[in-house]
Amino acid sequence: MSAGVQQSPRPFASSRKSGNRLKNNLFTGLVWTVGICTIIFIIGLLFLILEKGMPKLSIDFLLGLPDEIMEGGGIGPALFNSFYVLIISLVISIPLGMAAGIYLSEFAPDNKFIGFLRVCVEGLASVPSIIFGLFGIVLFVEAFDIGLTIIGGAVSLAFLNLPVLTRVTEEAIRAVPQEMKHASFALGGTHLQTIRRVLIPVALNGIITGICLVAGRAFGESAVIILTAGVTTSGVMWDFNLLSPGETLAVHLWYVQSEAIVPDAVEIAEKSAAVLVFIVLLINLLFRIPLWLNARKMR
């Protein structure tokens, strides 16, 4: 071997057929091009939305009351409702979804019924949101007869998010290495202690990613809210009444674009869109900060 290396002037020159190298280079180039195009597209989209709306934003617009006829209406109540409905829906769906996910990953017996249940949960996770809206109408507007309300919207949104949260929690907990679970049991930990102190903390990253996902989706959801919380607000700021009509920002955006007669509808829509996008980005960022800190500590 060593003789061969000495004799050849370029011992490490490629001996493979040049076709392979060409294919490799082409493929690398293709992946880079597609990747960069996608990133440019996403950044461009964000830039367009934010660039149109952000410069014109003012506190008056963010907190002001909407106007049906005159120019210069704000989005205050709708913005408030967005957060209010989101928080109520998360307060309902996070505990339920996590509990169901923990049940499926830790306690559920391995039989056909549970397998069927799992398929149902997966199916529900991909059901169009308007179906959940219709369900909300049947439950709140018809059965309970309370009309279009914040609580109706929030609970319907919670139903919409429940299957995704269940799924995400189950997967995240399943992904925790069995060895860690065994270590906790071998130290005399009960199942509950093991879930609380090992499984959930280790799975937290995945669970929070899931919560981010559903929070963003819930914040931007319109179909469910239109059907269950309506397209109007109570018209006052800081209205905590659960039975008030609960138009959110996403619905307001649709409403001013398609139904409203105010002269500055387009501008309101642009500004609302910018606020919507900005807040969804913010939600994702805020949820991640504790994870980043934790990851740095655990490196």
């Binding site: 290495p177 005399g188 280790v202």
Partner: peptide, 15 residues
């Protein structure tokens, strides 16, 4: 299990 401790094949510290 508190009285009978165990060490496993793979080191399995918690994160």
């Amino acid at each position: 299990r508190k009285k009978v401790g165990m060490v496993f094949q793979q080191p399995n510290p918690f994160p």
